[in-house]
């Protein structure tokens, strides 16, 4: 049975596709600011650090988003605190904090539930998207877009020139933590699509691909979401057709689009450079 036909037949596949598209859009948008701020490692860290939050929420039977957000923000604050109050560099602080959170999450989950659940959290389980999951993802997607539209000029300025923003009294730190909160929300939404381990790829790869094609931030945001959505659709198709895990399939497509851009984009100019020679 081919993908299109299956889509028309099975509700679960439609839910999976819509969910993957929503995640593609929001991670593409947020990812642009993550890479422009040089925070790829931070994005990786926060997406892993939500694991204990997911476990605790699962144990207490509360909303995953709530548990994950609390632990995501906690990790961001702790990283900031360690970096500010010791001589270790920021990437070291990130490494120490997020691996501890991640390890804690593993232990909690192994205490709480079966190995199957852990597998789904780590690698995603897009074919089991429920209606309520879909609703939550849609709400989070709307919030993310609202956040970026509302704070577009501040996000742009603080990514480019934070000192200038601080000098005129803008609360740069507050926006940083707001962005970290948004990042945790995106991570949780992406849990089912790609899983915790590969969330960072959905944040960084589409944004990096878009970056290679344009010098304008608003164009980059648009392109990045398009790459995110294309990866999601093509990845899901691959996953269905060849019986592959959906998360890795989506990420491989995104990486392929990056590779093509790396060679052919006018800005990166690997091909342009070769032709000029």
């Amino acid at each position: 049975m081919n993908f299109i036909h299956a889509l028309s037949q099975y509700g679960f596949l439609q839910s999976a596709l819509i969910c993957a598209i929503l995640v593609g859009i929001m991670s593409g948008l947020v990812g642009c600011f993550i890479i422009l701020r040089g925070m790829s490692l931070m994005g990786d860290a926060i997406s892993h650090a939500v694991l204990p939050g997911v476990a605790v929420a699962y144990m207490l039977g509360i909303n995953l988003l709530l548990g994950a957000s609390i632990f995501g923000i906690l990790a961001a604050l702790l990283i900031g605190y360690v970096a500010a109050h010791s001589k270790v560099k920021i990437d070291t602080a990130i490494g120490v904090v997020f691996s501890a959170f991640y390890a804690g999450g593993f232990i909690l989950i192994s205490l709480a539930s079966s190995a199957t659940n852990l597998h789904h959290i780590l690698f995603g389980n897009i074919l089991a998207v429920s209606d309520s999951d879909l609703k939550t993802t849609a709400v989070v997607g709307a919030l993310v877009i609202l956040f970026i539209v509302a704070f577009y000029k501040e996000l742009k300025l603080t990514s480019f020139d934070p000192t200038f923003a601080r000098t005129y009294g803008f609360k740069v730190q507050a926006l940083h933590y707001a962005l970290m909160l948004v990042l945790t929300l995106v991570t949780v939404s992406a849990l089912q699509t790609v899983g915790i381990i590969l969330v960072v790829a959905m944040l960084i790869t589409p944004a990096a691909t878009a970056f290679l094609w344009t010098d304008k931030l608003h164009v980059m945001l648009g392109l990045s979401s398009v790459v995110g959505v294309l990866s999601a659709i093509a990845g899901l198709w691959l996953s269905f057709t060849y019986n592959l895990a959906s998360g890795p399939a989506i990420v491989i497509v995104a990486a392929g689009l990056f590779a093509i851009s790396f060679i052919f984009s006018p800005k990166n100019g690997l091909l342009k450079g070769a032709l000029a020679r």
Partner: peptide, 25 residues
């Protein structure tokens, strides 16, 4: 960061940000 996707005009425009409110473009 000289690779940042921002134009000369937009950099100069950020000079007006201190006098703009949040949500005001």
């Amino acid at each position: 960061d000289l690779t940042f996707p921002i134009s000369v005009f937009d950099v100069v425009l950020t000079g007006t940000y201190p006098h703009l409110r949040v949500l005001q473009s």
